[in-house]
Design a binder for these strands. Structure first.
Lengths: 235, 235
DNA sequence: GTAGAAAGTGTTATTTTTACAATAAATACC
DNA sequence: GGTATTTATTGTAAAAATAACACTTTCTAC
């Protein structure tokens, strides 16, 4: 047996959407594309699947190259397969999105990629169908984060409740009542209060919390409810 | 420009998971595989992407062959890419799931595939990673149907509330209080009562309903809530 | 006309969600 | 040292949603 005869063989790409949060707004990591076509344009970090690796392996490899980081939150988004999506050659691309703690990102490791964080509102036009990928990823993140605690992946190991609230408000582009928000997140049992305070944001200082990993894994799949009136927000 | 040099080219497959509901239980449509490898084994209906078609087009083409039907509900599930998933040759497969009205399925059109409906509980072992695909699809359907009205796709144009409830109970393998269920589904505004009754299921007969398509599209993305305590059900 | 079987419906208790504002803690400045 | 300023923290009551629960209606078959 020598394989499937008469079937097309297609270049299989991956594209990685890396999201981070700087305390103010949700950002995406883009690079200046270093090869043709569209060389020099802002683009998602991508690559091609090798014959002996899965797409997950390929994504992790590319993400390691770009960010220097291992083991980040990574989720398959969608496979894009329009025959004309890449003008150079027919390719199929599976997009993955990653959520990372922006502070862990090490600029020096990837100076060769000219990587840069862009607030989603001020993102440049992207090549091919990557604009669509970003929109789909945002939708997915909003959808999933309304029910599951994925946004913690964007925060450092310890964080304050006001920081967490700012993150949710930024992702959903909304304002949440802080009394209700605090009750809501504490009710999940996912947060453990620490003794110390973060004094950087205010005179009084806000207590640090960290994620209760036990509960985190146990409740990850449960339908929590982090967002008031999600129905009205997510279109 | 002649394409990407030095990149692998890989056979791109699609697999279609076709679900139907016979009034009793959720079923999946399988075929007896007609070619090597694994010829004669029960399998999902699949195919390969041609050079000039998208994966959505390929899936629709395959589904048309298998069921004779066009325009059914079809959603990309996941792309499976383990390098060893297919023993004959490295392939990548994108799985799609379809929800159809089982009554529309035309056996005669595809006698050549030896297609057969199997209740999910009595499904034979499948080839390759198809078992995993089915499990993931079920998870996805349960997840999505808890919030969105996708299960209507499994019913005929008109149906009764008891039939609808049986469908939900079958998908979630649970019992729902019929008073609360009826209130819940009617509250969505998605159902329109018809004058006639279905007399097949009981002496008294149950009124037929059909979907209000206007509201259906408008509310499709909203977070409805069809399932009591979804947190406890979905693991 | 009576028995049987499933359809249809209403109320109350409980829980969850929402709306809303005063106090506490720490620093900076006087 | 005291006071002003800024942000963190906390509680309660009203409203809405959900969950628990059982009897009556309708039609057919005998």
């Amino acid at each position: 047996m020598t394989g499937y005869t008469n079937e097309a063989r297609i270049v299989q790409a991956i594209d990685c959407l890396v999201f981070g949060f700087d305390g103010e707004t949700l950002k995406i990591l883009l690079i200046k594309r270093g090869f043709q076509p569209e060389q020099g344009k802002w683009s998602l970090m991508g690559g091609f699947a090798k014959l002996n690796e899965s797409l997950e392996q390929a994504s992790n490899r590319v993400l390691k190259q770009l960010t220097g980081l291992d083991g980040m939150y990574l989720e398959q988004l969608h496979t894009f397969s329009d025959p004309n999506r890449d003008p150079l050659e027919r390719t199929i691309s599976t997009a993955y999105f990653a959520l990372i703690d922006i502070n862990k990102y090490q600029q020096q490791l990837n100076a060769d990629y000219h990587a840069e964080w862009f607030p989603l509102k001020r993102m440049p036009k992207l090549i091919f169908d990557q604009q669509e990928m970003v929109e789909m990823a945002l939708k997915r993140i909003r959808y999933k984060a309304a029910l599951h605690p994925i946004l913690f992946e964007l925060l450092p190991g310890r964080f304050t409740i006001p920081q967490l609230q700012t993150l949710y408000e930024s992702v959903y582009n909304t304002k949440i009542d802080k009394r209700n928000f605090s009750k809501r997140v504490l009710a999940t049992g996912l947060l453990i209060k620490q003794g110390e305070k973060d004094k950087s944001g205010s005179k009084r200082g806000a207590f640090y919390y960290h994620v209760n990993m036990q509960n985190y894994y146990a409740k990850f799949q449960a339908f929590l409810n982090f967002i008031p009136n999600p129905t009205n927000l997510i279109s």
